[in-house]
Amino acid sequence: MDVSCNVSSIKLKNPLILASGILDENGYTMKKIIESGASAVVTKSIGIEERKGFETPVIYEEYPYFINAIGLSNPGIDAFASEMNILKGYNVIGSIFGTGPEDFSYLAMKMQEYGAIAVELNLSCPHVKGFGLEIGSDPDLVESIVSEVKSKVRIPVFAKLSPNTHDIIEEAKAARKADALVLINTLKAMKIDINARMPVLSNIYGGLSGKSIKPVGVRYVYEVSKEMNIPVIGVGGIESYEDVIEYIMAGASAVEIGTAIYRHGKGIFKEINNGILNFMKENKIESLSEIRGCALR
């Protein structure tokens, strides 16, 4: 049985990647995640300059979901070199964010220089003004960012898209020059505490993640896989091997796991990997490619 998979030119030993934004600002932490069974990690989104992020509270938890507005806190691309240095020889996908094609291509070149095996363009952070969502909902800007980055780096370029859009196909088509699409980022959401009579997050709005968003993620992966011939990495609410199989059947080449770590710990990668192997054995599946997209109608 073979759980390995390919995402564009990258070969991964299993389809389980750490999603951006979770335990991925610190080199040693990311190393631990890979040693815990993830085939690759996506870094926290890194920008040109250091950003402190929003004031606390930056998260709200209530199973089965999570709302966060960390606010793209990151040390800036230059300072991030030292974290990437710790990860030499490991599969690291550099997530980057910026305001336009120049920012993104500069950051992508830096990530390539640092040894990243791919870059993931964060075109979809739902809660920081001027970045992410505001970019992601402008198809022309998405197209020019992807083209510019593609022309500047040799490593594969992944585009992480937003579910907070009226037309995912339009957005996906704008990013079609990417080597893979990453679907989906968090959904814009909020929480009001009825006893305090105000929003909990200091930023008011945050991104919804966790089990609650899985059906939405699966739908987007399915829809894009049906319409376009491009590798898709599925993200959103994955907590079990069943969730991974579902995403793969919807057309995903690989998946990213994030929020689930808070309930299941870093051991989740091995747990899910074992679950996938058992499922394959029971169902006489030799390779994940046999079931990839099998649910598409």
Binding site: Y28, T29, V58, I59, I70, Y262
Partner: peptide, 17 residues
């Protein structure tokens, strides 16, 4: 500490949350 639930990486020391 920001999240307190082991996911934001802001309190990590040598890969330990």
């Amino acid at each position: 500490m920001k999240c307190a639930v082991g996911i934001c990486d802001s309190c990590s020391v040598s890969g330990i949350q």
